[in-house]
Every structure is written in structure tokens, then in C-alpha cells.
Design a protein around this nucleic acid. Sequence first.
DNA 1: TTACTGACCTTTT
DNA 2: AAAAAGGCCAGTA
Length: 103
Amino acid sequence: MPTPFTLNVKDLIRQIPAGKVAPYGLIAALAGNPRAARQVAWVLHACSAAEHLPWHRVVNRNGKISLKPFLGYEIQKQRLLQEGVVFDAKDAIDLDRYLWRKG
DNA sequence: TTACTGACCTTTT
DNA sequence: AAAAAGGCCAGTA
């Protein structure tokens, strides 16, 4: 039985609209534990496939993809590009523009 | 059962 | 300013 935090994380990720992204810390904070970003990451790589969570809309605090190349990085980037998210020269997303705002 | 690992973030030296 | 440590939860060995 997963903790409410984990369930909350999944719900929050489901609420992320297309074309927006959310860092791990924000989801963790909304889920109730600002320092449980690591757990958020775990939920993604472990449960995202089983659920249909838009895991590609979750990036790190730098606005960059944490995944390593050829291990999901390209897939996530392509998905985001399909949704209209633009990467800058550093392969990072402008969080000021694409950060998901609750509401 | 304990111990280690993992798509990380925040706080403290 | 940069660097180190602490913290969170679930899965695997």
C-alpha cells in the first residue's frame, strides 16, 4: 500500500496540461513533502509506464531532462516538442514560460 | 530481515 | 560563491 504522498504525486502528474512542465520539487511540494523529490522521480521511472502518466512533462530543476541519452532522453524531448515545448541552445526549457501553474 | 540504489531537491558548511 | 550532507519512499539483492 503506497503512501498518500505517492498517490498524490500520480494525481498531480495527471493534472499537468500539455505544453507545460513541472520540476520534481514542485510536485513533491504539492504532494506534501518538499524534500521528497526523489520519491517523485521514483514514481516516474517505476510507475509511469504502468499508469498512463505524462512522465515526459516532468523535468529537473534546471529545466533539463535528467534521463541519460539513449535511455529515454530523446523520447522525452520528442514528446515535449510535440506538445509545443521549446528547448533552448542548452537543451533546457524556459521554466518562466512552460512551468506548470496549478490552477 | 537489513542494506543499497535511484529520472532529485533543500539546507548547511 | 561552490561543495557537502541530509532527507524522502519504494524496489531489489
